[in-house]
């Protein structure tokens, strides 16, 4: 073999373990559940191999699944908007601050490292019947009996915002850092007020970061099932809870496959639209 040929082969040798793992543990399994979703779970618990449309008919036409899907998208959308409203000014402050940006950013990233389950359950300490809020209100004499503030849609959104906010801040920060501050100065010197130059120069230039953060918040928020279990009430199930229910509790794996693929189709479409207009590079910047 020539030196060139060996040289050309080398990267593929280095890549093959990782590509092999992704193929065998992600792409083949995804293709498998697509096939599996057309099988049928019989009353005996065995799978009937074949091409049955029952699972898909149930997943797509049952109002129960549809309502929960819509509710899931609604919760994810509200979470994303709240993250943007809270996160954008914070990212702006860090990017334009004269202090130590690295420390400010690191501080906001710290909760990102703190266990997700701990952060989720920590709200029980704050809002539960014997939590900080109730305790404070009772001490102040505002209320005489503790109020149950937990286990509703609002607390699910609260938990999700707490979990996802760092993703938003990081992405917006990265794009704000990439903007030449001279542009803002130029707008100001041409007579724009600070607010005008922000609205017409800085904000449009930072939209890719906002979109990347928004995509992450939405996709991660819509795919969660732990937060609704810990912080939601009995009627606050999200779509991933249905998947968990079908796979782990009911052991109806073909139906669970169809539901998983439905979720993948909805969220995957968003990722594809994002990729089409903004490209993956922006997303990688925020993650890396």
């Amino acid at each position: 073999m020539s030196v060139e040929a060996r040289e050309a082969r080398q990267p593929w040798i280095l890549l093959s373990p990782a590509l092999g793992a992704v193929t065998l543990l992600l792409f083949v399994p995804l293709a498998f559940i697509l096939v599996y979703s057309f099988w049928l779970r019989t009353a005996t618990g065995a799978d009937q191999v074949g091409f049955y449309l029952e699972n898909w008919r149930e997943a797509l036409s049952d109002a129960f699944y549809r309502d929960i899907l819509i509710n899931t998208l609604k919760i994810a959308a509200i979470t994303t908007i709240v993250c943007a409203l809270m996160g954008y000014p914070a990212a702006y402050f860090i990017a334009r601050s004269k202090g130590n940006k690295a420390i400010l950013l690191l501080l906001l990233m710290l909760p990102f490292w703190i266990s997700y389950i701990i952060r989720t359950m920590s709200w029980i300490n704050i809002l539960g019947v014997s939590g900080a809020f109730n305790s404070a209100l009772m001490t102040l004499g505002v209320i005489s009996e503790p109020i149950q503030m937990l286990y509703n849609e609002t607390t699910v959104i609260l938990g999700l915002v707490h979990f996802l906010l760092p993703f938003m801040v990081l992405n917006v920060f990265v794009s704000l850092e990439g903007i030449d501050t001279n542009l803002e100065d130029a707008a100001n010197s041409l007579g724009a007020t600070k607010w005008q130059s922000f609205l017409q120069v800085t904000l449009p230039l930072s939209l890719p970061g906002l979109a990347a953060g928004g995509l992450l918040c939405f996709v991660l928020g819509a795919g969660t099932y732990i937060t609704p279990i810990v912080l939601g009430g009995p009627t606050d199930a999200m779509f991933a809870n249905l998947v968990f229910e079908a796979i782990i509790t009911q052991l109806n794996w073909p139906l669970g496959s169809a539901l998983s693929l439905m979720l993948l189709a909805v969220l995957g479409t968003l990722v594809l639209i994002y990729n089409r207009y903004l490209g993956m590079a922006q997303l990688m910047k925020g993650l890396g």
């Binding site: 992600l26 795919g223 998947v243 796979i247 979720l263 993948l264």
Partner: peptide
């Protein structure tokens, strides 16, 4: 890919 879907697959 949403982690739930990855987990199921």
């Amino acid at each position: 890919v949403p982690e739930v879907v990855l987990a199921v697959a």
